[in-house]
Amino acid sequence: MRLAVILLALFIAAMPIAGSAASAQAAPQAALPFEAESLKQILDAHKGRPLIVHFWGLTCSNCMAELTGWGAFTRAHPDATLVLVNWDQRGARPAEIGPALQKAGLGSVSSFALGSGFEERLRFAVGPDWMGELPYTRLIAGDGSVKAFSGPADFEQLGSWLAKQSQ
């Protein structure tokens, strides 16, 4: 188990940052399982740098509608670090995650999918006040402070947040 965690952390750290044109051609990558300790590992791997963690679902029409928007955002902000977490629950179709992300131009973005069945526990580890609504996004500043919002992103605002982080 410990080895698995270390391997997972290494894997996350080694993951390419959003949007390189070359890797967009590659076969869709499989999403990694998102477990209770995953968010902490992601945060540790990107410590001191701004990070955007976006939770979405194939079953959520509002999420699917803005997915290409996220693709455009990563192309416009190649230095931004985005992590995507698919939060489909029962009846999830993990095989469709990779192709959906690739279609939206997010094929090379670090991608996770809801792990074991105890959704409440995994959600609590993300944010005790997150009620599971999708889309849901957490913005983690370099100093570790967190802003979260539900619903579609305002990409202009997101861009300003990012610009502020690098000042």
Partner: peptide
């Protein structure tokens, strides 16, 4: 005013 799926 939110275009999110609360699933609740």
């Amino acid at each position: 005013k939110i275009d999110a799926c609360p699933h609740q």
